[in-house]
Design a protein around this nucleic acid. Sequence first.
DNA 1: TTACATGTAACTATAATAGTTACAATATGA
DNA 2: TCATATTGTAACTATTATAGTTACATGTAA
Lengths: 144, 144
Amino acid sequence: MSISSRFSVAIHILCLLAINKDKATNTSEHLAGSVNTNPVVIRKVMSMLKGAGLVNVRAGVPGSELAKGLSEITLLDVYKAVNVVAENDLFNSHEHPNPDCIVGRNIQQSLNKQFSTAQKAMEHSLEIVTLAEVVQDILDSDNV
Amino acid sequence: MSISSRFSVAIHILCLLAINKDKATNTSEHLAGSVNTNPVVIRKVMSMLKGAGLVNVRAGVPGSELAKGLSEITLLDVYKAVNVVAENDLFNSHEHPNPDCIVGRNIQQSLNKQFSTAQKAMEHSLEIVTLAEVVQDILDSDNV
DNA sequence: TTACATGTAACTATAATAGTTACAATATGA
DNA sequence: TCATATTGTAACTATTATAGTTACATGTAA
């Protein structure tokens, strides 16, 4: 199991928009060239980012741009925008354990506690990083 | 995307073995009755738990038992035993971004850092909880 | 040696991902 | 206004993983 690459594609796109300010050139075709995928994949991700208020893009108008400052967008914002993991659903529990068994009738709530805590720990790690840091890291890496 | 319920099934099994010390009655048939699944599913999970040294079970001999003390088994041990998430593979990155683009040629290492940190945060959360706590929680819940 | 459990291969149904084709809807410049 | 180019989306495919199931070989012990 792995979290969908929609997330990494979304981060890639947003970094590109941050670095290339020339809005009109940021078409799905062009972005697809950098990500190395199909333009329709880009447009689908773009549609989700637009829904979350992270990018500006309009039907018929070529190109796109960030709708917020780089340092105002955390990795958690992007993660939620592209809907790769549902609320409290990183871990999948088996359903309908036997209620006639002490373990069966109590384990779900115990697991939910632990799983929820673990998921939150992961999400918190994404929350404390902004795209500004990721872009800076990319620029730094390229200048070595 | 969700992490396989093999993990929750494995925890369920281990809790049962902790509560029912009568080894011979812990057959895959019986465990399947509490988890509410097929005995073969139990045997597959059991095979992985055995491989990780968490349970004792032998071909031809009915039943099973814990191979370690409850407080010596963390949720991370179980998670690794059933192999639900590969090393550094919780997040799936898009492959082959364009090396002719500054973002394309640098984003993978930036993402790997962030994704690895997030995965470790989640796994650490599992590491600090032992099965002893989960079993105690189950017993407490049942006595309300 | 019989009975019964474990171990495992092979198959099914289901669901999600990533990519693709096709086309409608939209906006803009000539 | 119309031609053109792009976005938005539906519909389809191939691939992969999960969870469950059947079938049967293997192993143990009474």
